[in-house]
Design a protein around this nucleic acid. Sequence first.
DNA 1: ATATTTGTCAACCAAATGGTTGAACCGAAT
DNA 2: ATTCGGTTCAACCATTTGGTTGACAAATAT
Lengths: 202, 202
Amino acid sequence: MKAKEENTELEILNAAKEVFQEKGMAGSRMQEIADKARINKSMLHYYYRSKQLLFEAVFKNAFRLLAPQLNKVLNDDSELFDKIRNFTNNYISFVIRHPYLPNFVIQELNKNPDFIEKMRIEKDFPKVEKFKVQVEDAITRGIIKPIGAEQLFINIMSLNIFPFIAAPLLQGLINVEEKEFQKLMERRKTEVADFIINSIRL
Amino acid sequence: MKAKEENTELEILNAAKEVFQEKGMAGSRMQEIADKARINKSMLHYYYRSKQLLFEAVFKNAFRLLAPQLNKVLNDDSELFDKIRNFTNNYISFVIRHPYLPNFVIQELNKNPDFIEKMRIEKDFPKVEKFKVQVEDAITRGIIKPIGAEQLFINIMSLNIFPFIAAPLLQGLINVEEKEFQKLMERRKTEVADFIINSIRL
DNA sequence: ATATTTGTCAACCAAATGGTTGAACCGAAT
DNA sequence: ATTCGGTTCAACCATTTGGTTGACAAATAT
């Protein structure tokens, strides 16, 4: 019965992912997850004991998916400008594959800031140190203007992540349909990198 | 008994604001709002009929508070660079006064994109047209490099709003305490404006 | 083949939750 | 003093919700 067991467990995790990421912890219902996984509600508790634990499993999975993306900026050996261009160009593809994920992680971290400490233990938890060295090095070598690595990192994240988090608001303000907004996002793949590099290049 | 009536109604709205903005629609409990307003739960329904309507009252209020901030970028007569510096410098003060507000608006708009249409009717709903003219004018006058007004607007919003929305995540990644993070945000008041202007200035 | 463990479900359960009701209360007008 | 409209609350109510139980089926081990 091994196959089936793992199957059900995974089926639950996938259903839970969909529901939790779309509606958040508070807005999600165990029944909806069970329905989506096409199993009985008892099964959820059989495999994950409680809503809280199921949620944490989903959250950890989500974070483990997001972390490598952040590490592309923080812990990659490529040259700074390439790195910025690469991340910016790739992030949109990531969002298309996991539309609710970044916002989900950010929101639940807002409601439960302690989670970040639990995540820090993980071996691939993104750290800023290496990036900091790289930025400071680029500054001393006269490649970019002086800027705090933290600020630059925040800027890269902001410019890439925010438009997707605030999509409905921005669509409303700019007054474009979803299709047109997607085109704007598509153009950002290159424009945002240029925007950043223009700003820091010497 | 007029005074008391308005008092209770306002007291409810304030309590509801606090609870809704911190926990979102789904995570909020009518009882908690009643407790915070120091009144009976029945009063909530007496004045606002249902959770949904109370929520919408809070949301509209929140949006009406946020709109003027956005209009400082979109519908202000000041010169482009001043405008960017001004907005960037002021936005942090706004967030300190209303820490949960921007995220609240964005989140609930995500869960209910139709809300933006209801808001568009309001007379001070921010529109991008005027800003667009200003940016295109600055481009033809050779003051800034070519850039879509929409992209520039998204960039300004991203760089200013995102750090507060993702504060717990960013704090975790950069590995600083709240105090230190606040200092980073304080520095952004000027640095973000420079970052933007550096990027677009000719 | 038999016992044992593992997986699945329908039926339940207690607590929480949004909402309702009816009576009491209060200030103002008659 | 009485009436009357608006205000307040305690007690209720129906439904939802996370979670449990006990029986049964399906594998696995003996």
